[in-house]
Every structure is written in structure tokens, then in C-alpha cells.
């Protein structure tokens, strides 16, 4: 099986700080990969390099075998990468439906002349946009109002809409940056189930997450980062047993022994 995403020896530095320092990992089709690590380990920086918001200082990012390193975020999105942000980045004054329509920008179907003259093509494509937006909102299990500005909604609902927007992009690869942050237990359970349904659509998922229960349950492979480097990679069971991971999360005892207890 060919890899959807290949990250090879990725580096980025801000001044003297090496935020990502030689990260490599692959993601295959229909795979859920989690990237974990302590705060400041470089997870979000790595995401920003992959999606083009940062220009990596060295290394390569391949999407379905084609290099996307250092391209413009819009071009990378067009190539088939979609993402959510660590802190919500929605369009606060626009309606829920409009927010989801943002993910459909690349569908096209109309140009400015169609819009000015309200051609049948315009009406068809607008109807299709709306229907598709409703479909994705249904898909993520969103039940709130859809015609109101998104700033009025609860946090959990906003998170759902952000995922719906990213899904509407119909990308091969979905990057989720802390999708479970701030969600309660039942919302997390629904997120877990949603991840599996997204995977069944044929989309590969890479997620950054701090909730270890969720990570262990949802992901097939885990990449553990610390100080910009990958310190472990493997199945949840392998990672859980890895001494380097336990050290990164729990530290060492004073006498230098790695702690053996506790849930990493």
C-alpha cells in the first residue's frame, strides 16, 4: 500500500529554537495516526509545515508521492490536505452553513459572471452547495441551528462545524489538531466513532491529541515527539511500553531510573 503522506527528515527553526528537528513518518490510506508529545514538542509546528503555513528549513513532505514541501497553503489544500486548528479558526460572523461551504470552495461550478446574471448554472451549484453542507453537518452529527452566525454557538458545536468544514474539502488526508480539547466524555466518545466513520470514507487521519485514552483507542499507529524529534513510533501497545516515552511524560527518578508505573 502506497503512503498518502510521507514526511522525511523535516526541520524548522525559529531563530535558535529548533521546533521540529528531523521528523519522519508515513501515513497510509485509511490509517489513523496520532502524534503525541508533551507541550512544546513541535507537534503543531510539524502540522503547520505539512500544510504550508510554515516553510520548513529542511526536509521533504510528499503527498501521494508528489512533493508539496514549501508550497502555498491553498495549493496544498488543493492537492488534498485538509485541517482543523488547535484553537478554533472559524468565520465567526458567518452562518454555520457558510462556514461549511468554505470547505467546498474548490468544487467550483460557478464563476462571477454566473453570479451576476444568476444563470441556471449558478442556481444549480448554489443548491448543490447547500445540500452538501447539510450532508456534512449531518455526517458529523451536528444538531444545532444552521442558519445563524457561528459565534452564537456552544464550543462543542463549533468544534463539530470545524470538522464538517474540513471534511467538505473531501481531501485524502485530514489533519486534526487537538480535536478532543475541551470536549466532555460523551462528546469524546462521539468523536471516536466519527474518526472511524471518516476513515471508512477512505480518508487518512493524522491527529494531535493529549487525551491518552482517546489516542490509545482510536489510532493504529502513534508517533511520539519530544523536543522536535521523534522519540518513538509504533502501535499503541508498543508506545505504551516504550521507556523513552515514559521518560518524556513522567521524567526520571532522582536516582536515574525510569518510572515503570503509571499510564503514559
Amino acid at each position: 500500500m502506497s503512503a498518502v503522506l510521507e514526511v522525511k527528515n523535516l526541520h524548522i527553526a525559529f531563530g535558535g529554537v529548533k521546533a521540529v528537528d528531523g521528523l519522519s513518518f508515513d501515513v497510509h490510506a485509511k490509517q489513523i495516526v496520532a502524534v503525541i508529545g508533551p507541550n512544546g514538542a513541535g507537534k503543531t509546528s510539524a502540522f503547520n509545515c505539512i500544510t504550508g503555513f510554515y516553510k520548513p528549513t529542511a526536509g521533504e513532505v510528499l503527498l501521494k508521492g508528489a512533493a508539496i514541501t514549501g508550497k502555498r497553503p491553498a495549493d496544498i489544500a488543493a492537492a488534498g490536505v485538509s485541517r482543523t486548528f488547535q484553537n478554533l479558526r472559524l468565520f465567526p460572523d458567518l452562518t454555520v452553513l457558510d462556514n461549511v461551504r468554505a470547505g467546498m470552495h474548490l468544487y467550483g461550478g460557478q464563476n462571477w459572471a454566473d453570479a451576476i446574471f444568476h444563470t441556471p448554472r449558478f442556481k444549480r451549484s448554489e443548491a448543490a452547495y447547500t445540500e452538501e453542507a447539510h450532508r456534512w453537518l449531518d455526517f458529523v452529527g451536528y444538531t444545532g441551528p444552521r442558519g445563524v452566525p457561528i459565534r452564537n454557538l456552544a464550543y462543542g458545536q463549533q468544534k463539530q462545524v470545524e470538522i464538517a468544514r474540513a471534511l467538505a474539502r473531501k481531501s485524502d488526508l485530514l489533519l486534526l489538531d487537538e480535536p478532543a480539547a475541551g470536549l466532555n466524555y460523551s462528546e469524546k466518545q462521539r468523536l471516536l466513532e466519527l474518526c472511524h466513520r471518516i476513515r471508512n470514507l477512505g480518508t487518512a487521519i493524522v491527529l494531535i491529541e493529549h487525551d491518552m485514552g482517546l489516542v490509545m483507542e482510536v489510532s493504529e499507529r502513534i508517533v511520539v515527539m519530544n523536543f522536535g524529534r521523534e522519540i518513538a513510533e509504533g502501535t499503541p501497545a508498543e508506545v505504551k511500553a516504550n521507556p523513552a516515552v515514559i521518560e518524556a511524560y513522567l521524567g526520571r527518578d532522582e536516582d536515574g531510573e525510569v518510572q515503570s508505573h503509571g499510564d503514559a
Binding site: 500544510t51 489544500a77 485538509s82 472559524l90 468565520f91 457558510d98 470552495h105 460557478q110
Partner: peptide, 20 residues
């Protein structure tokens, strides 16, 4: 229209628009 929405997306959050 689609273009008008794109303008509003840019107004509201340029980075998020770019990511889409």
C-alpha cells in the same frame, strides 16, 4: 456567490480561508 463567500472568508480569517 461563491466568490462573495470567499471574500468574506478572507475578511473573517485569512489563514483558515487559505487552509480551505
Amino acid at each position: 456567490s461563491r466568490l462573495g463567500r470567499a471574500w468574506r472568508f478572507v475578511r473573517e480569517d485569512e489563514d483558515a480561508a487559505e487552509a480551505m
